[in-house]
Simulated assay, not measured.
Amino acid sequence: MKSILALFALLLNLPAAAAQLTIDLDHTSRTWQTADLLKHPQAQTVQIVDDVSYKRDMTYRAVPLAVLLPGLNPASHLQAVALDGFAAELSAAPLLEKTGARAWLAVEDPAHPWPALAQGKPSAGPFYLVWTQPETGHISPEQWPFQVSRIKQLQTVAERFPALLPDPKLAANDPINQGFALFQKNCLACHRLNGAGDAQVGPDLNIPYNPTEYFGGDFLKRYIRDPQSLRHWPQAKMPAFAASVLPDNELDMLVEYLQHMAGRKHQP
């Protein structure tokens, strides 16, 4: 047993290896190697203030993500798939912006590996989607996927997973429909609902029970704001959603969507 643990510790401390990232768009597909991205003509050093994953300022060698998405329509939809099963659903428009909040693909250099995310854990590499000036674009923590292995263009969430849809009789601007949009942005990267979704990290949020059915009072909102304040354990992965990225009115709409879906259970 000791020898297995020692081998595991050794593997965690090995230097980062070169990797590859596949970007599949409807009209083109390309696989990038670490070395190619590091020497990309638009690669540069970027400073990230209060990095979402490392909880401190970080410096990366990165490429503007927009240049890796040639010909992509801003109305398109993408998914960034991580090595651990995290699947971030991403609207294309923010990724293509060249001012304000700007998306970058940070590339881990095997010669200069990034630090571990926590003791006993790997780094955020080999590829990490980071943002400069995220506060100007209302960027959620779930829009910072790390350990990315693939980015692919897909149909919208509503088209792929009808089991997530609220009652079609609701008006388009109903708060519940707005909550559905917030659910896609903030929750679907880790969670499924009614068995629908691609994520493999967190529990299903409707089957067998919806969190609005077992969190009393305002505890669900408190949990979303700061999960560790209600249930604390070392391996917890859910991030805190501060009011700066999920204002109170949006949090209310998100919870309204979940309450609505508690009455629309579909067995997967």
Rank of each mutant, 00 (worst) to 15 (best):
M1W: 09
M1L: 10
I4A: 13
I4S: 10
L11H: 12
L11V: 15
P15F: 08
A18I: 09
L21E: 03
T22F: 04
T22V: 14
D26M: 03
H27L: 05
T31H: 11
T34S: 13
A35W: 01
A35H: 10
D36Q: 15
T45H: 11
V49Y: 11
D51T: 15
Y54G: 11
K55D: 11
R56A: 14
P64N: 09
L65K: 09
A66Y: 03
A66Q: 10
A66I: 08
P74C: 14
P74I: 15
S76L: 03
S76F: 00
S76K: 07
L78M: 09
A80K: 02
A82D: 09
G85K: 12
F86I: 14
A88K: 00
A92V: 14
A92P: 07
P94H: 00
P94I: 09
T99C: 06
A103Q: 00
W104V: 05
D109G: 04
P110I: 01
A111D: 10
P113H: 08
W114G: 04
L117T: 15
L117E: 04
L117P: 06
L117M: 12
A118F: 12
P122Q: 06
F127R: 02
Y128A: 06
L129G: 02
W131Q: 08
Q133I: 07
Q133L: 10
I139G: 05
S140G: 01
P141N: 09
W144N: 03
W144P: 03
F146L: 02
V148P: 00
S149T: 15
S149H: 04
V157K: 00
A158F: 01
R160T: 13
A163D: 10
A163P: 04
L165T: 07
P166Y: 01
P168W: 04
N173Q: 13
I176C: 04
Q178H: 08
G179S: 06
L182H: 06
F183W: 00
Q184T: 14
C187D: 05
C187W: 02
C187L: 06
C190D: 12
R192S: 12
N194C: 07
A196D: 05
A199G: 10
A199V: 13
A199R: 00
N206W: 05
P208F: 06
N210Q: 03
E213A: 14
Y214T: 14
F215M: 06
G216V: 14
G217R: 09
D218C: 07
I224M: 11
D226W: 05
L230C: 04
R231Q: 15
H232F: 12
W233L: 12
P234K: 07
A236H: 13
A236G: 15
F241N: 01
F241V: 10
A242W: 07
S244L: 07
S244I: 15
V245R: 01
E250V: 15
D252N: 04
E256F: 01
L258K: 02
Q259C: 03
M261E: 00
A262Q: 08
K265V: 03
H266P: 00
Q267L: 10
P268N: 02
P268F: 02
